[in-house]
Amino acid sequence: MNVKEIAEKLNLKVLSGASGLSNEISFGYASDLLSDVMGHAKSGEAWITLQTHKNVMAIASLKDLAAVILVKDLQPEPDMAAQSDEEGIPVLGTSEDAFTLIGKLYELLKK
């Protein structure tokens, strides 16, 4: 499933990086410790977090992630949004908390 399909199914807002909406999402990874994501997320995954710092995009790019999903209506900081546009890695947003969003996403992506 690609980012656009997931966004539609889960009613996620596209906050930045719309040029990457066709990225295929393989699975998900949830963590708010960027050092942990750097070590353990896998290429093609969607990253669910509440961190809004620009470093999020650097790590998403480094790990070749498909998208970042911000929970609880959090907004990317302006330089994070700019880098998301540049890299073509979408940042999606939801008003739901991580537990709820991840539950729904897991149902869509489980193998």
Partner: peptide
């Protein structure tokens, strides 16, 4: 440190 630090929370030191 592995917690509450620039490297643990943000993965690396932001250049800017």
């Amino acid at each position: 440190k592995p917690k509450y630090s620039l490297t643990s929370q943000l993965g690396f030191i932001p250049a800017d």
